[in-house]
Write a protein that binds this DNA or RNA. Structure first.
Lengths: 300, 300
DNA sequence: TATTTGTATTGAATTATAAAAAACTATTGA
DNA sequence: TCAATAGTTTTTTATAATTCAATACAAATA
């Protein structure tokens, strides 16, 4: 009926183990010192000390805290199975939308989502609130949330925004110093692209991952928290839609490999205009692929 | 211990007023029709009908709902003082941070904020969650939230991001068709700039608003939900910092007016390169003004 | 006087619950 | 027969209550 006491439980076992390292009759450090050690507040530490005294592991009177006996297995308390499943909620949520192709204007039930994602309701609400900044979801007048979703307009605006960010990144790469890690990464990517190009007939599915890696390297040059935040969403959306549109998939991927290589060539030649032009062409292709994949799915 | 019944109360008064427009002994429409009218669910409507029957305003039996008497003042129920103050929470929150110069790494207490902003706690939590997308606030390990705030790094990254967006906007303006409203707006702005330039000695404070208007017009050409979302934050931050840094304020503003006019000139001449270069110069000035205002305040 | 402890206050995570929405079933009347 | 309407049940949401934890402050100790 209230918050869990996992914090206390973990701290207790922590302090218990620490007691095990001390000699019988030796003194424990101050409460504040123990706070630091366990990374919790004094309130929790004092609760732990109370429990330790109750178990007869220590004697505790004022600032006198002495070890009475060596702690044993039974002294420690059980820690409830930590549902770490609220870890990468974002990835799993976008994954769900894209994989199951949840249509735009679907009402989202917090109760249902919290069950299926195994996450407390209030956490899900906070998450949805944060997503609303991307215009992906919105509050409904009659309460609850609504998936605005991947409409045609959303895709167009996302693509345009991506182009702006990525062209900026390209411009930055050209100006990167010779010892910047991006050059080694690009050389490596060139090799991987060439290799995949040779076995494209059979391995064309592998391109999606390579595409993600390529754009990640390009964007890694721009150290900007806003860019990073958006890149997460952008790469997921494009990654999935790439995998969807099965029409001419092999041809498309083969063409994209060439486009990537053209960009790498221009970058390594430090030819800014050529790099920008090549990137523009590639981004245009990407956009139309994204739009056509939407057309093939449902709405417009 | 549960949600408020404001919805019911408002709906009731709504339906009551509607009853007032009907003749005695005439029939009310179906429950569903009433739902539509009041914009609530049938559950609420039925509760309203129950209350109306209890008050003797109507007779209700199955689908027979007849007006018995004309409703009077005392029939309506009081609506708790609607705290519309959760309206522009975002503006007020940023306003608070900037105006009182709340330092970076300040722990934010949801309880306290919800009191001072007069907004329910859960709403504030959702708001903070959404702000976390901008990297302005973050969760703390020991619970609660933390204002990451306007550090030097934040200002730099925000400026850079702004430059990327705005240079893109400039490029779009140049390509805008002749009948696009932006041209009339720019002509108007030119006039206002010239006028302010003449009386800059006395009215230099008026520039801040003009600056905001100028950048708004430039960015209005880009129809993109992501850009719009960011522009809100960007304009607020720059607006305030402009007002802060009092050193050489008049000179700075006079110079900025000239920079704006140079941009307008280049745009009207459809000279893309000149416009971009002028914009770049102006954005550089803006950035250094922002940074120096931070230096004058506190940290770095 | 600087730590350390004792105590009180405040805040946050989580749950319980009333209000509202939505889903489902039965009834009515053309 | 079937579309619209009402009755009933189930589910969901918004919000306060509850309990754990953090922090602030006072008293005591060394």
């Amino acid at each position: 009926m209230a918050r869990s006491d996992t914090r206390y439980r973990e701290a207790f076992n922590d302090i218990l183990a620490y007691c095990g390292t001390l000699e019988i009759d030796s003194a424990l450090p101050s409460e504040n010192a123990l706070c630091q050690q366990a990374g919790v507040s004094r309130t929790v530490i004092r609760r732990c000390l109370g429990k330790l005294e109750e178990l007869g592991v220590i004697r505790w009177e004022g600032r006198e805290k002495r070890i009475l006996r060596r702690p044993c297995e039974e002294d420690s308390i059980a820690i409830p199975p930590a549902n770490g499943s609220s870890e990468d909620l974002e990835k799993r949520f976008l994954d769900w939308i894209l994989r199951f192709d949840v249509p735009a204007n679907t009402p989202l039930s917090v109760a249902e989502l919290s069950r299926s994602f195994n996450v407390p309701q209030h956490e899900l609400k906070e998450f949805l609130a944060s997503l609303s900044r991307f215009g992906l979801v919105a509050r409904r007048k009659q309460g609850g949330w609504m998936l605005l979703g991947f409409t045609r307009a959303f895709a167009i605006e996302l693509s345009d925004f991506r182009s702006v960010l990525e062209l900026n990144a390209i411009a930055n790469v050209v100006d990167a110093p010779i010892d910047h890690p991006v050059w080694a990464q690009l050389a490596d990517l060139r090799g991987k692209h060439m290799s995949l190009k040779e076995r494209i007939d059979t391995d064309f599915h592998a391109f999606s991952k390579l595409d993600e890696a390529f754009h990640e390297v390009i964007n890694s040059v721009v150290r900007n928290r806003f860019v990073v935040e958006f890149q997460k969403v952008i790469s997921l959306v494009f990654h999935y839609h790439y995998m969807w549109d099965k029409t001419h998939e092999m041809d498309r991927n083969a063409a994209a490999i060439d486009e990537h290589l053209t960009i790498i060539d221009a970058l390594e030649a430090r030819d800014k205009d050529a790099a920008m032009e090549a990137a523009r062409r590639h981004l245009r292709t990407s956009k139309s692929t994204l739009l056509s994949s939407l057309r093939h799915h449902d709405l417009g």
